[in-house]
């Protein structure tokens, strides 16, 4: 028996919108501590890891660990039928091949349930060890989205370089080149507007902008984004979900061979 009631249902809608274009199908792994998902895009270049902890739910019941394979496009279609203020409850029964999403309006005068077919998914789970990163940049998520969008109009790849001077985003394309430098800036009115650069060693890596732009669909989930880089590891682009968990995107770099 599985029953999860999320008062801030819009959060789940936003989570789905942030990952559904990157990943078609995924197994949702439910346990008593919360639910998680790990899935790669079809080309195995990017990976999404989602965690929503049970503490963030008004009611959370998961009698035993269970994995449910869902088509994220279909799940998104169903969640789009929930109002932004609706309370969303996810329900499942052991051995069932469906999951139910229940939407309640805040005033309880409209209650809808949508039953979605589950699917069997052969998922490739990767072991991602904790790592020390050479550089970690925390910046406003809207600023990061703007930079990725702007650079994608010039080139296909972005070089992200972190030095003690700041973080530089560079691209080049047929029409020319672009460089955007952000300096550390902690003298802001609101902490979420700060750009904070933690650097142990300088790092410079190249990534496909198409994926970066896809990651920025998570911008509505968090005011800030954290970008963690080490030369021999995929970059981690993390959007924290307040009090509940995170959506992390991992992207393999482009490297010279």
């Amino acid at each position: 028996m599985l029953e999860l009631r999320l008062v801030q249902g819009s959060l789940l809608k936003k989570v789905l919108e942030s990952i559904k274009d990157l990943v078609n199908d995924a197994n949702f792994d439910f346990s008593s501590s919360g639910f998680s998902l790990q899935s790669m895009d079809s080309s195995h270049v990017a990976l999404v890891a989602l965690l929503l902890k049970s503490e963030g739910f008004e009611h959370y019941r998961c009698d035993r660990n269970t994995s449910m394979g869902m088509n994220l496009g279909n799940m998104s279609k169903m969640l789009k039928c929930a109002g932004n203020d609706d309370i969303i409850t996810i329900k499942g029964d052991d051995g069932s091949d469906t999951v139910t999403f229940m939407f309640e309006s805040p005033t309880q005068d409209k209650i809808a349930d949508f039953e979605m077919k589950l699917m069997d998914i052969d998922s490739e789970h990767l072991g991602i060890p904790e790592a020390e990163y050479h550089a970690i940049v925390k910046m406003p998520s809207a600023e990061f989205a703007r930079i990725c969008k702007d650079l994608a109009s010039i080139g296909d790849t972005v070089v992200i370089s972190v030095t003690k001077e700041g973080v530089k985003f560079s691209t080049r394309g047929d029409i020319g080149t672009a460089n955007i430098v952000l300096r550390q800036n902690t003298t802001v009115d609101k902490p979420e507007d700060a750009t904070v650069i933690e650097m142990n060693e300088p790092v410079s890596m190249t990534f496909a902008l198409r994926y970066m732009n896809s990651f920025t669909k998570a911008t509505p989930l968090s005011n800030t984004v954290t970008i963690s880089m080490s030369p021999d590891l995929p970059v981690v682009v993390e959007y924290k979900i307040a009090e509940m968990g995170y959506v992390r995107f991992y992207l393999a770099p482009k490297m010279e061979e």
């Binding site: 990767l126 496909a208 393999a252």
Partner: peptide
Amino acid sequence: RVFQKSMFDFYQEY
């Protein structure tokens, strides 16, 4: 030449 790496170049499946 610059090549796109894969997740499998960095992490093991389990």
